[in-house]
């Protein structure tokens, strides 16, 4: 894996408050190209708020998020115009949501779901769009003949895979994933994780993965950040943290996993 020396994303002193309550308190980290950063912690620890700040859905109260664009321009997110932000959101960024219904356009076919980002970036050749869509259905292990079916007719696991295809079709540089395996049964989870892992390696994606499931974090992420009550209590290499947790909360978290 190639790691460039320039970080793709720099988060500096990010604080996000709901009223007087700090959902994220003074978060700092860098994300390098090709890296998968896992953010773990229990419900209410500020994981999703952090991800929403990164996606631009929420505005942080303090601190800044600096993103390095494909053309080399380094700019704080707060300084991007809305037009720039939305352009990046459909070209260089991707957001895989916990519930596929939030991330998919449920009223149009699977093919159109995958083609939407292509058409949004100027593709105007039906044949080419369809070929790309078929290609991506194959990559996420959905049968070609489901291309004209509505996502409503898909199972939960298929919907989630379709959402991944729809997001990755334009070759984004930064992928945000919010509990991508939440609500799926374990065998479907395992296949999805396998798929995501191979896509991450093939496409050399940089991913920020939010999950409460340590197994998911272990399988996918290279680096791990443990959050509790809006604070980062520990961060480091995934194996290191899971094998030898230092912070009391990380120890609790690791020891809470059921051993089968």
């Amino acid at each position: 894996m190639m790691i460039d020396d320039k970080p793709l994303l720099r988060v500096e002193g990010l604080t996000m408050r709901y009223g007087s309550f700090a959902a994220c308190n003074d978060i700092n980290f860098d994300l390098y190209p090709g890296e998968v950063l896992g953010i773990v912690g229990e419900s209410g620890s500020g994981k999703t708020s952090l991800l929403k700040c990164l996606a631009g859905d929420l505005e942080p109260d303090e601190g800044q998020i600096i993103y390095t664009q494909a053309n080399g321009i380094e700019k704080p997110m707060a300084d991007l115009t809305e037009a720039e932000r939305r352009l990046l959101a459909r070209t260089e960024w991707a957001f895989v949501r916990q519930h596929p219904r939030d991330g998919l356009r449920m009223g149009v076919s699977a093919g159109a779901n995958i083609g939407e980002r292509l058409m949004a970036t100027g593709a105007r050749h039906y044949g080419n769009i369809r070929t790309t869509a078929t290609d991506w259905l194959g990559k996420v292990e959905i049968d070609d003949d489901r291309i004209d079916d509505l996502p409503q007719t898909f199972s939960g696991g298929m919907q989630q895979r379709l959402q991944i295809a729809r997001n990755l079709v334009t070759g984004p540089r930064l992928v945000l994933m919010d509990e991508p395996t939440g609500g799926l049964d374990v065998s479907v989870q395992a296949r999805l994780l396998d798929l995501v892992r191979s896509l991450v390696r093939q496409l050399n994606l940089s991913v920020i993965l939010v999950t409460h499931d340590l197994a998911v974090a272990r399988l996918l992420s290279t680096r791990l950040m443990v959050m509790q009550r809006g604070q980062v209590v520990e961060q480091g290499l995934t194996d290191q943290i899971l094998e030898d947790p230092q912070a009391p909360y990380s120890q609790l978290l690791v020891s809470s996993v059921l051993q089968v």
């Binding site: 939305r86 459909r90 356009r105 149009v108 076919s109 093919g111 159109a112 083609g115 939407e116 980002r117 058409m119 949004a120 970036t121 100027g122 105007r124 039906y126 769009i129 369809r130 291309i147 004209d148």
Partner: peptide, 15 residues
């Protein structure tokens, strides 16, 4: 941002 308009036309052709 008019990509969505073509999504509608895409749906037409696919159906």
């Amino acid at each position: 941002e008019y990509g969505l308009m073509h999504v509608k036309l895409y749906e037409d052709i696919s159906r």
